[in-house]
Structure formats: C-alpha cells, structure tokens
Design a protein around this nucleic acid. Structure first.
Length: 383
RNA sequence: GGAGGCGUCGCCUAGUCCGGUCUAUGGCGCCGCACUGCUAAUGCGGUUUGGGGUUUACGCCCCAUCGAGGGUUCAAAUCCCUCCGCCUCCGCCA
C-alpha cells in the first residue's frame, strides 16, 4: 500500500510544521511539497487500478447454473405440468379469446387505450378493474401469509438502480428513459426492491429478507412488432406483484425453489393449467444464473405462455449495488432472487380464457371471490 | 419555479466565521467492571463505520470516513465548485 504509507508520512509531517522554528519550517515545507506530488501520483495510480478492477467486475455476466439447458429461446426443458387442459370440443363450444370475452364483460377497452396512448395501451373497465384489484389483493395476501413484507415502490428510479439491477445492458432498449430528468421508468418492481438495500451491510441473521412489491411496470417492447398484437397480452404498461428475496449465497438455490413453489401455489389457486420450464442459456439475460418460468395454457393460442418467471441472480445485482451481508465480522455480497407472483394483464388473459363458459360468462376461481364481493361468475353486459 | 436554512462517529450536540494543537467535544443510550440484600443510584473503563495488514489468541498496526464527488493548500469537518437529501417561506397546481 504505497499510497497509505505516503499519506501517513504526509500526516506526521503536517504535525511538525506548526511547531517548527522558522528555519526548520522552510525545509519542512519544501519536503512537504515533494510529498504532495508523490501522494497525488500514488493516489491516481490506485484510483486507476480500482476503476479497472471495477469495470472488469461489471463485465462479468452471471455464471450459469450447470443444469440449465444450453441453447436459445426454444431450447427450454419442461420440468413439470400441472392442472388439466379443458377440452372445449367435448364441451360443445369454441373458446373465445380474452379480448372478445373482455369486451363482452365490459372489462377491457383497447380501442380507447390506443386512441389516448397508442397501441399496446388499454383501459381496464368495470369488472376488469375490479378483477385486477382482486388479483392484487389475493396475491399480496398469499405473499404476506408466506412472510413477505408488502411494499409499494417508486416507479421512477435513478440510473444507478437501473444499472445495478442489470437492466441497462442488453435490456436497455426496452427501458423508458425520461431524458430531461434522467429518470428511468421501471419495467418491474424488482428494480426498486433490489436497490432498496443498496450500499447496506446486512447482518446474516436478518436474512432472508423477503419483500412483495406492487408497482406499475413500463416496457417499450422494442423488437416485438407484430407479436401478440391483439388484446392485453403484451403491453407497454401493467401492474405486477413481485416477490424479491435477499439471502446468504449458500441459500440461494433453495430460495429459488421456494419462489417457484409460491408461484405454483398461486397459479394452482387460480385453477390455471400450467407447465414449469427451465429457461435455456440463450434466454437467461446477464443477471440470472438460472430462471424458471411458469407458463399457463392459453386455449385460443393452443400453447403455454409465460405468466411468471423466477430468477436466481446470485451476487450479480448485490455486487453492483454494494449489498453485502456480515457473518463473523466478514462481509461479502449476498444473493438476490426475484419471482413474479402476479403480472396482472397476462393473468387476466389466462383467467378469462380458461374459465370461460359457453354463454360468454367467466367463472371466478374461489380464491378471488372474497375480493369480488363474493361474485362467482362474471356476466356479459348488455350493449 | 423563486428565496433562505440545515446535514458531524446509534440519538442529541460542540467545533466551521478566522485551515494546523480535531488522534472530532459533551450528554444520552449501550457494553464491561467495582460497590451496595435485589432493582435503582454511584464510580471507573469502553463504545463511528468500512477496507487492508498482523496474531494460536486477547489484541495490535495502517488507510479512508464530519451527506457525496471534485478543487485550492505543505495541511480541509473548516475555504471554493458541483451534486444529493431534509426543513421553512413564496409562487403554481392536483
């Protein structure tokens, strides 16, 4: 530590100067002048090295878990399937898609959404609005029951929070930025929940820390032209309940499984058929070492579509945000994990389509009924 | 949007005008010890945080740290600049 030594020398010298006789003083000052230059040079050298080390660290993507399937978006592994896909043919009617159902229920208005804000915007109206509130309440209730602390988070964040969570890398083009104020609109409350403890050191016996965030989410959806253009499956703004955990590194993998279990519990309570996939390497992004998605069956598409996603970020975000834990006087980056509990519009899509009945009404799964005034069925409204 | 005030080691606080004796004052709280049936009170000692080094260990040593970052200077809590946050007043407005 050359800088430390020089600095120490400079300090001791500084104490002598005020006490020195005039003759000594001139000599000391000359020496101090030289020291100043040395200290400055040593400091610059140290800063440079620190910065280089930091840049190298930031370039590191996460190390992918060894069990993750190698390949692109289509190369995922199906881990499990749950629930039963309905046979509408046997029931004697053709399923309607969520938009047709939603419009008949007076629940979704995409036309006026487009008029006011453009494509991929929508209004949730009447029972649609109530359905969102019911979903959010039920999701928060489940999370709270599981020990999560409910959180309402900022939707606008500073660059550091965005960068620290890994969203200014390859995902940057999907992020809204307010140039005039240099704010970013979050695409998920994962961002403010991760940054919540930035620059903090957390005692190991406070872990795990679990938060359930609810916030609007904004996504530019760049590069998705022509994809999911109908209805509210893919939109620029939506609300989401997100689970977020801070854990000790050795507990990260187990926590990842727990997050997945909570997501399965949620989708099961909504009585939706779904499968769990192990997302392939090419679709992981920089921050996750492994990602499990739960995909619900969408009848009119004839396939499973992503509803929730649970990621293990290990120390990736913690390193960038300087979030450490302390154990036996040692500090080290902890691990962060996140998992969707309820992304509202997609969940509404799945509920409308899977629980629709021949007359265009939609059965309300029991878990939501307490939050919908006991309502068991949503009925189409007269035009 | 305009004007002003403020930010000190858990909490409160001295220090900033006028740079060095600040190795940052004092109180509260907390921890340890002593003393007194217990409690309380009293006395003595300790108590910022982070990084690094060293030790079998208790510990010891070095650097940084007075909201953050730059600058001036031989030397910065103190002077200058930028930024962040909090408070007060005015204006505007859900």
């Amino acid at each position: 530590m050359r800088f430390d030594e020089l600095r120490n020398e400079q300090k001791s010298l500084g104490k002598l100067i005020p006490k020195a006789t005039p003759e000594e003083r001139a000599q000391l000052l000359a020496k101090a002048e030289q020291l100043k230059a040395d200290v400055k040079a040593a400091e610059a050298e140290q800063n440079e090295a620190d910065e280089a080390a930091k840049q190298l660290l930031l370039k590191l993507g996460n190390i992918v878990h060894e069990d993750v399937p190698v390949g692109g978006e289509e190369d995922f592994t199906v881990l499990e399937t749950h629930g039963t896909i309905r046979d509408f043919g046997a029931e004697g009617f053709e399923p309607k898609d969520h938009l047709e159902l939603g419009e008949a229920l007076g629940a979704i208005d995409v036309e006026r959404g487009a008029k006011v804000s453009g494509s991929r915007f929508y209004y949730l109206t009447g029972v649609g609005a109530l359905l969102e509130l019911a979903l959010v309440n039920a999701a928060i209730a489940q999370a709270t029951e599981a020990g999560f602390i409910p959180m309402l988070t900022p939707a606008l964040v500073r660059p550091r929070a965005m960068e620290g969570t890994g969203f200014l890398g390859q995902a940057a083009e999907n992020v809204y930025h307010l140039e005039k104020d240099d704010y970013y609109l979050v695409g998920t409350s994962e961002v403010p929940l991760a940054a919540y403890h930035m620059d903090e050191i957390i005692d190991v016996d406070k872990l795990p820390l679990r938060y359930a965030g609810f916030s609007p989410c904004f996504r530019r959806e760049a590069g998705t032209y022509g994809k999911d253009t109908r209805g509210i499956f893919r939109v620029h703004q939506f609300d989401k309940v997100e689970m977020f955990s801070y854990v000790a590194p050795e507990d990260a993998e187990a926590e990842h499984k727990r997050l997945l279990e909570w997501e399965k519990q949620w989708l099961t309570s909504l009585e939706l058929p779904f499968q769990v996939i192990d997302v392939a390497t090419g679709d992981l992004g920089a921050s996750a070492s492994r990602k499990f998605d739960c995909e619900a069956w969408i009848p009119t598409q004839g396939k499973y579509r992503e509803l929730t996603s649970a990621s293990n970020c290990d120390g990736f975000q913690a390193r960038r945000l300087q979030i450490r834990y302390r154990e036996d006087k040692k500090t080290a980056p902890l691990s962060t994990l996140n998992g969707t509990l309820c992304a509202v519009p997609r969940t509404i899509v799945a509920i409308l389509e899977n629980h629709q009945q021949a007359d265009g009404s939609v059965r309300v799964p029991p878990v939501l009924r307490p939050y919908l005034g006991g309502r068991e069925v949503l009925e189409p409204i007269a035009k």
